[in-house]
Design a protein around this nucleic acid. Structure first.
Lengths: 107, 107
DNA sequence: TTGACATAATACCAAAAGGTTTCCTATAAA
DNA sequence: TTTATAGGAAACCTTTTGGTATTATGTCAA
C-alpha cells in the first residue's frame, strides 16, 4: 500500500486521549492556550507540550495575537490518518467485501 | 461528540509504525508469529509484544493451532478509529463544509 | 522417545512520554 | 510606568514503551 510518509507524527499525536479531547474542543472553534488549560486538570506546561505535538502532526496551527497564542484545528491532517484507515475499508465493510467476492468469482 | 469508550486501546495500537506495518501485512492474510518476525529487523519477543498490544486493541485475534499462533486481522476494530476521525469529516471536506454553510445560511 | 521447532515468560535496559515546579519574557492595562 | 496577564523554557521526576538476551514449555516429527 501507499504508506504516507507523514503518517507517523499524525498517529503519534492521536495516541493520547488528552490530545484527542483537545482536537474535539478545537473543532468547535480556535482557542488560546489558557482556555484549553482551563478545561483540563493538568498544568499549562503539560497542555503546551500536547499542543506542540499536535502542531508537529500538523493537526493544529498557531496564530500569535498579542500575548495570546490562538490554536486552530487543521482538519486536513486528520484526513491523513483517515485515508490510511480507509484503505482497509474493504475488509470491514461487509457490502464491499461481498462485492469484491463477486468480482473475484467472475474472474 | 460520542467519545467511544474503547477508542484508547485502538489509537494506542495504531501509534507505532511497526504495528501499522503488521496490520498491513495481516490484511493480506493471517500469519503465525514466526512469519511476522521474519519480515522485520527486531527480535521475536519484540514482535510478540506488538502483537499483544494489537490484540488488546482488538485489531487482531489469535488462533492457537498446534504449536503455532495464527494472527488474524480484525478490521472491525479499525472502524472504531475511522469513525472517530470521520466525525470531523465535515471540517476537512470542502464540499460538505460548503453544504453546511448553505444549510446554516437558510436558518 | 528424542530432538527440533514455535512460541511464551522473565528479567533487564535505555529512551521517550507525560507530568510537575520554578523562573523568565512579552504584552496589555491601570 | 508599574502591575497583571498569557505564555514559553528549563530542570527534574516517574512511568511507559520498545527493545534485548536468556530460559522454559508444549508440540510435531524422525
Amino acid at each position: 500500500m501507499i504508506q504516507s510518509a507523514s503518517a507517523q507524527p499524525v498517529f503519534r499525536a492521536l495516541a493520547d486521549p488528552t490530545r484527542r479531547e483537545i482536537i474535539s474542543m478545537l473543532a468547535a472553534g480556535a482557542r488560546p492556550v489558557g482556555d484549553i488549560t482551563a478545561a483540563f486538570d493538568i498544568t499549562r506546561p503539560a497542555i503546551a507540550k500536547h499542543l506542540r505535538i499536535l502542531e508537529q502532526g500538523g493537526l493544529i496551527t498557531v496564530e500569535v495575537k498579542g500575548r495570546e497564542r490562538i490554536n486552530r484545528l487543521n482538519p486536513q491532517a486528520l484526513k491523513t490518518a483517515s485515508d490510511w484507515l480507509n484503505y482497509f475499508e474493504e475488509f470491514w465493510d461487509e457490502r464491499l467485501a461481498k462485492l469484491k467476492q463477486v468480482v473475484e468469482d467472475k474472474k
